[in-house]
């Protein structure tokens, strides 16, 4: 199949970007979206043009590195799918495909389609952990954890930190990411000691990073490759209030 691509190109974070028109020819429907871009890059290189920069690594939907807004939708048209797991059979021959980077002031573009998601790491640094050093942990079975709590924690912990929630949110809010981590640790007995401080610090850091605010539009859960529900945002809101009241 042949496709008409409109790819965002930007030399560096300070430069002005533009859309480059590229025709992708002879694309197999079995290719992943990134493999299609590989083909495009090989062709650009052969023509003496610089290949398109995009983030990717594991290409099996778990590392969270890949990050493209495809025709206006983060990770493209398939629900619950990262860009690296999106296959070209979901596109039509001759289709125009607009490819943009995550757009959020807190995720500045580094080059072309690659953005800096360091803000997420700083949010985790603020409190997204249980403060236990190696060595002193009690036996793994010392504290029973109900199956429901473990499953709930896992539902939230499935987040791959790709940032699609921010990219899709009309306000570039990071609530779903933060809520997932807060909910994961709040669901487990091991997370109780720092429960209140964690949510306070993580929210404070999130605000400081310049993300927008949640207006309950739920675009985030629609694009989340791990289909993490906005229910967790409600949970975080409650956690935050509880933390502030207990204070």
């Amino acid at each position: 199949m042949n496709l008409k691509l409109r790819i965002w190109r930007q030399k560096n974070s300070g430069a002005k970007g533009y859309f480059q028109k590229v025709d992708a020819k002879g694309i197999s429907p079995d290719m992943s979206f990134l493999e299609m871009l590989d083909v495009v890059n090989e062709e650009l290189l052969a023509k003496g043009e610089e290949p398109v920069i995009f983030d990717h690594d594991c290409r099996e939907g778990i590392c969270g590195a890949c990050s493209l807004v495809i025709n206006g939708v983060a990770h493209g048209p398939e629900r619950g799918t990262t860009t690296c797991q999106l296959h070209m059979r979901h596109f039509k021959d001759g289709q125009i495909i607009v490819i943009e980077p995550w757009r959020a002031s807190a995720f500045p573009v580094l080059k072309d389609l690659a953005v800096d998601r360091g803000a997420f790491d700083r949010i985790i640094q603020a409190g997204g952990f249980v403060s236990v050093g190696a060595g002193g942990a009690p036996d793994g079975n010392a504290i029973p954890v109900s199956k429901n709590s473990a499953e709930l924690a896992m539902d939230a912990a499935a987040c791959i930190g790709c940032g699609a929630c921010v990219a899709a949110c009309k306000n570039a809010s990071a609530m779903l990411f933060v809520a997932a981590k807060v909910s994961h640790l709040a669901a487990l007995p091991q997370g109780q000691v720092e429960r209140a401080a964690r949510v306070e610090r993580m929210v404070a850091q999130m605000d400081q990073e310049g993300f927008g605010n949640c207006t309950n539009q739920f675009e985030c859960q629609a694009v989340c490759p791990k289909e993490i529900g906005v229910w967790f945002i409600a949970k975080m809101n409650k956690e935050y209030l509880k933390a502030k009241i207990c204070q």
Partner: peptide, 14 residues
């Protein structure tokens, strides 16, 4: 929070 808007914006769920 989104100083540069998407050229091609789409809505899935909102």
């Amino acid at each position: 929070a989104r100083s540069i808007p998407y050229a091609c914006g789409a809505t899935v769920e909102a």
